[in-house]
């Protein structure tokens, strides 16, 4: 088994008297799609916000490629190779695909000290990324505002790849998409993993999760209650883990 990209050790998060997350141990591996499942309020969002650097954990530590890290901002997480694709994509609709992919990190050449954009190079790089992802977007110069929801997800993924992200966190990427679009985004998710990225996927749709995930982690009431290889579990078991009907979860909840 390969060395995990990220190890979360005993992570806890408290907001005042409220414990949102406790004792979470988790390993995230490169080339693997890890699905986080759980009811609303189970702690999934809190956990990915800690991974994304948006919240500091109250307890525990994050280890990336063997080194302990402490994020004080999303920028720190990004420079450690973690990219988060939030549900409300942070794309500028009025700018082109290529411009969005490079926004904030443009390629430029200095002429008399003035930074001029290398538009040609940026366009070619984005063209290559789009082809590699098989995203079915022909023109990197098209404005993002003209794209469908699934295509926008593809642009956000391109952006993450272009930042050399080693871990891509996707927060319900298919929540607002039509069926055909959902298919495409799931395929993209698989391709990200095939490229060697670690992918963390949050979803409410269990059949979708079985389609793409290698491993499934279930959160319940702020704790990780189960971890299964997707190949070794089934729909019914996962549902019972989420609802707490599963004997393992009952046993766990009885002990505390």
């Amino acid at each position: 088994m390969t060395e995990p990209f990220l190890v979360a050790k005993n992570i806890a998060k408290r907001f005042g008297a409220l414990t949102a997350l406790s004792n979470v141990d988790l390993e995230i591996r490169s080339g693997e799609v890890l699905a986080l499942l759980g009811d609303n309020g189970a702690g999934k969002s809190t956990f990915i916000k800690i991974l994304a650097g948006a919240h500091p954990p109250s307890e525990g530590e994050l280890v990336i490629e063997g080194k302990s890290v402490a994020f004080s901002s999303p920028k720190d997480a990004a420079s450690s190779g973690i990219a988060t694709i939030f549900q409300e994509l942070a794309l500028s609709e009025n700018l082109s695909i290529a411009e969005n992919v490079f926004l904030g990190r443009e390629l430029k050449r200095s002429i008399f000290g003035v930074p001029f954009l290398k538009r040609q190079e940026m366009r070619q790089r984005v063209d290559g990324l789009l082809k590699e992802l098989d995203a079915h977007i022909s023109d990197p110069e098209a404005p993002v505002g003209s794209l469908s929801g699934g295509q926008r997800q593809a642009v956000a993924i391109c952006r993450a790849l272009n930042l050399n992200a080693k871990l891509v966190i996707m927060d319900e990427p298919t929540a607002a998409l039509a069926v055909a679009e959902t298919r495409k985004v799931l395929a993209l998710t698989r391709r990200l993993a095939a490229r060697g990225c670690a992918v963390v996927l949050i979803s409410h749709n269990i059949s979708e999760v079985f389609e793409v995930a290698d491993r499934i982690v279930v959160f319940r009431r702020g704790r990780k209650v189960a971890e299964r290889l997707a190949a070794e579990t089934n729909h019914e078991e996962v549902v019972s883990l989420i609802t707490g009907a599963h004997p393992d979860v009952r046993a766990l909840e009885k002990t505390n």
Binding site: N94, L95, L103, V114, L117
Partner: peptide, 16 residues
Amino acid sequence: TPYGLHLLAIGNSEEK
């Protein structure tokens, strides 16, 4: 230049 892109992106949404 990047300035122009940044300007238009801010005009679209400062938060994004």
